[in-house]
């Protein structure tokens, strides 16, 4: 990860993965920014972490569990109240072509 500079194509690939439409100017600027940031974080390669466990949670925690009980907190109107488009009690979205995902 040390010397690899991120290419414009790679930036475009990541933007597609992140579902971000970017202008050419944005793509170029992001290439430069990411290049600089990745150059900086390459610092981590100095560390030998082969024997180190990753930290996912800062504090040692265990998962609390919840009883299997239904508690309703929102009405359908509340759920749909911020929808850009709704119809028949459902969120309306652009046509989904079968097989996406």
């Amino acid at each position: 990860m040390t010397d690899t500079r991120i290419t414009r194509d790679e930036v475009a690939r990541v933007a597609r993965l992140a579902r971000l439409a970017l202008s050419d100017d944005e793509l170029n600027a992001l290439r430069d920014d990411l290049d600089a940031i990745l150059g900086y974080v390459a610092k981590l390669s100095e560390l030998d972490v082969s024997e180190v466990e990753p930290t996912t949670h800062a504090i040692p925690l265990e998962m609390p569990t919840r009883r299997d009980e239904v508690v309703q907190t929102l009405s359908r109107d509340e759920v749909l109240s911020n929808a850009p488009s709704a119809e028949d009690g459902m969120f309306k979205v652009p046509t989904i072509l079968e097989g996406g995902n």
Binding site: M1, V41, L44, S45, L47, V49, V52, E53, P54, T55
Partner: peptide, 15 residues
């Protein structure tokens, strides 16, 4: 592995 996992391990060292 090179970025995210490495950072999580570095996080352990910082902690």
């Amino acid at each position: 592995d090179a970025y995210y996992l490495k950072a999580q391990k570095a996080r352990t060292l910082i902690r």
